[in-house]
């Protein structure tokens, strides 16, 4: 699965460049997340702005990705489209993740 990542200040922003995290994509998503988060900042933000469909397999893969980055690191979500936001709300997974409305543009370096 096509993920791109950018270290920004103290964050690692991981962008999903695909429209679906579904049963057909779940394993590739988990593997790709493991690769891109292997190193880098402890605070990871997953940008789902291009994703318009997540099923329960995709939801499980996002939970798995959150667990596999390790107990001392943090995975937040950002830029959820309404259909994806609905899945997180229905399953109450919106209480598990910190969800940002959008990915913050890069600020001036301190």
């Amino acid at each position: 699965m096509d993920l791109s990542s950018t270290a920004q200040n103290d964050h690692l922003i991981v962008t999903v460049n695909a429209p679906r995290i579904d049963a057909a994509a779940a394993i590739q998503f988990k593997d790709a997340m493991r690769r891109v988060t292997a190193e880098g900042p402890d605070h990871v933000i997953l940008d789902l702005g291009q994703v318009d469909f997540v099923d329960s397999s995709g939801l499980g893969a996002i939970v798995a990705a959150m667990k596999q980055i390790g107990p001392d690191r943090r995975l937040d979500l950002a830029a959820l489209r309404p259909e994806v936001d609905k899945v997180f709300r229905l399953t109450r997974m919106d209480s598990v993740f910190v969800i940002h409305d959008r990915v913050e543009p890069a600020g001036p370096a301190d």
């Binding site: 099923d55 329960s56 397999s57 939801l59 499980g60 893969a61 939970v63 798995a64 959150m66 667990k67 107990p71 899945v87 229905l90 399953t91 109450r92 997974m93 209480s95 598990v96």
Partner: peptide, 21 residues
């Protein structure tokens, strides 16, 4: 039934949401 989402992070469900949905 909706799987519980309040356990510790290590035990959060990664499946079981299909029939709930």
């Amino acid at each position: 039934e909706r799987p519980p989402t309040d356990p510790a992070r290590d035990t959060l469900p990664e499946g079981g949401f299909g029939w709930f949905l």
